[in-house]
Amino acid sequence: MPSIDGVGSARTYGDACAAAHALDLVGERWALLVVRELLLGPKRFSDLRSGLPNAGPNRLSQRLRELEQTGIVRRRKLGPPARSWVYELTDWGRELQPVLVHLGRWGRQSPFRDLDAGISVDALMLALQGDFSAETGGGLSATYVLVFGDDRVTVRVAGGVIGITRGEPSAPDATVTTDPRTFAAVLTRRRSLEEAVHAGDITVSGDLNTVQRLLDSFPRPETAETPPA
């Protein structure tokens, strides 16, 4: 295995703790968010830039090189007709998904999070994966397509389990067309589904009640106490 110095970073905790070593590998700024953006499948560099607009191209390229050199990400060329280069997670890299899910659950309790900040489609899907509650879902069994511009994501709920994949099934129970910011606002109860539909910010094809049942399957966590001034 290459040393930390050998993958482009001279910073290391120098600690034999496995958690410290993991942070040596993915603790640099943007590294875990690159992993987040690849959880649902391969992406071109331009797609990663769209999902991480605040990461400069040079910084993003550096993180991708480091993640490649540590065996977390790999780069490959798609076959025809695309023939474009994409980045994807290795099997080891995909094992970071539950880490990100639990980190997100912890972060959602923060009293300091800016809920009006930008958010990517992949970040939203990670939130769905982490926050879904079979108990509040009430036996929900349905298939949804979430449409964000050119990006289509399928969400399937059955048997108390949620599954999320890119692509579109042949016969969904409902199709929701919106933008990430609006969907995030509805998901976090800052806007109601009814109000967003009435305002034209969300379009629902299919059963509106089934969409509301999906949203109700994500209870909001209690916010941690703000430290005294």
Rank of each mutant, 00 (worst) to 15 (best):
2 P>N: 12
4 I>D: 10
5 D>V: 05
8 G>M: 07
10 A>M: 07
11 R>Y: 14
11 R>H: 14
13 Y>N: 02
15 D>Y: 00
20 A>L: 01
26 V>F: 00
29 R>L: 14
30 W>A: 07
31 A>P: 01
33 L>Y: 05
34 V>K: 00
37 E>W: 06
38 L>T: 04
45 F>G: 12
45 F>S: 11
48 L>A: 03
56 G>R: 06
57 P>R: 02
59 R>E: 12
59 R>D: 13
60 L>Q: 02
60 L>N: 03
61 S>V: 07
62 Q>H: 12
63 R>H: 06
66 E>G: 13
69 Q>D: 14
70 T>E: 06
72 I>A: 01
77 K>N: 09
78 L>E: 15
82 A>Q: 11
84 S>K: 13
84 S>R: 15
85 W>T: 15
87 Y>R: 07
100 L>H: 01
110 S>C: 02
112 F>G: 08
113 R>M: 08
117 A>N: 05
125 M>N: 10
126 L>A: 04
127 A>G: 00
128 L>I: 00
131 D>E: 15
138 G>S: 11
139 G>N: 08
141 S>H: 12
149 G>P: 00
149 G>F: 01
155 V>F: 03
155 V>S: 04
156 R>L: 02
159 G>K: 07
161 V>L: 08
163 G>K: 05
165 T>I: 07
168 E>F: 10
171 A>T: 10
172 P>F: 09
173 D>E: 09
176 V>M: 12
176 V>I: 15
177 T>I: 07
178 T>R: 06
181 R>C: 01
183 F>N: 09
184 A>S: 13
189 R>L: 11
192 S>M: 09
194 E>G: 08
197 V>W: 01
199 A>I: 02
202 I>W: 07
204 V>G: 12
209 N>F: 12
212 Q>C: 04
215 L>M: 14
217 S>V: 13
218 F>H: 14
219 P>T: 04
220 R>M: 05
225 E>M: 14
228 P>Y: 09
